[in-house]
């Protein structure tokens, strides 16, 4: 993977270093995300994988001491350039969080809100239905659209959060450990949904669950910590290669559970 063909990738990072104050949380990340594939980021706690994920849609901007060096390219454009509006970035690159966090509003409103604030002009009812169908939730909630999003089960709530993200029509969906609060069946449903969504969207998922990365992703990036506690990317490749025949001993140790 070379640096020349930058429009070929959904996201491309070049020499990215991420800091919290003086602490370098992540160093020298060069990563190319393949469009319409699922890329998993795995690694031990504190290796900066969530920090990297959140830098892809500038969610780290809310941490006052956050600072970044390098470039993160989206359609060949550095999303950290001076003239870039982070709000626009987040409309194009959506996010699903660790804990299902639907708004304390109705199911309908949860989905419609994002589209509405972004100036959606079409038929909201149709959008809500289509999005809920895409998120494999429509059949379960179609009779209860007025009910609160919080009345759903954990797995349904997470799918509602995915639907909510889809309604804004992003190109990329970032998922930050989306199943860590869910039971195994709900987890598998989300994984199937991710597979379905990857026909249209580029998905990047951070997960603690190696089996999940192995099951659900096409590409896997392994991050670990250096001696100075800065996270770095050790290995990046197709998921089947990483999980059957990793090239780096650190990846091997982590994947076989012999880390540390």
């Amino acid at each position: 993977m070379t640096h020349e063909t930058n429009n070929h990738y959904a996201i491309e990072t070049r020499g990215v270093n991420l800091y919290y104050g003086n602490f370098r949380a992540v160093k020298d990340v060069d990563l190319q995300i393949v469009p319409q594939k699922i890329t998993a980021i795995i690694g031990p706690s504190g290796c900066g994988k969530s920090t990297v994920l959140r830098s892809f849609n500038r969610m780290n901007d809310f941490v006052p001491s956050f600072r970044m060096e390098g470039e993160i390219l989206f359609h060949g454009q550095n999303i950290y350039a001076e003239d870039v509006d982070p709000v626009m970035v987040r409309q194009r690159i959506g996010m699903v969080f660790q804990k299902p966090n639907p708004f304390p509003k109705s199911i309908y409103e949860n989905v419609a809100w994002g589209a509405r604030i972004n100036g959606y002009k079409g038929n909201l009812d149709e959008l809500v239905e289509q999005t809920l169908r895409d998120a494999a939730l429509w059949d379960e909630v179609k009779d209860n659209l007025k009910k609160s999003g919080l009345s759903l089960s954990g797995g349904q709530q997470q799918r509602l959060c995915i639907a909510r993200a889809l309604a804004v029509k992003p190109e990329i969906i970032l998922m930050d450990e989306p199943c860590s609060a869910l039971d195994p069946i709900a987890t598998l449903k989300i994984e199937e949904l991710m597979r379905e969504l990857s026909r249209q969207y580029t998905i990047i998922i951070v997960t603690h669950n190696m089996q999940q990365a192995a099951r659900a992703s096409d590409y896997t990036a392994f991050f670990t910590m250096d001696d100075d506690r800065a996270g770095l990317m050790v290995e990046y490749g197709e998921t089947h290669q990483i999980f059957t025949n990793p090239r780096d001993q650190r990846t091997e140790d982590y994947i076989t559970g012999r880390f540390g």
Binding site: T244, E252, I255, T256
Partner: peptide, 9 residues
């Protein structure tokens, strides 16, 4: 044990 990588091989 869900072995991975070298263990799996």
């Amino acid at each position: 044990q869900q072995p991975m990588a070298r263990d799996l091989r």
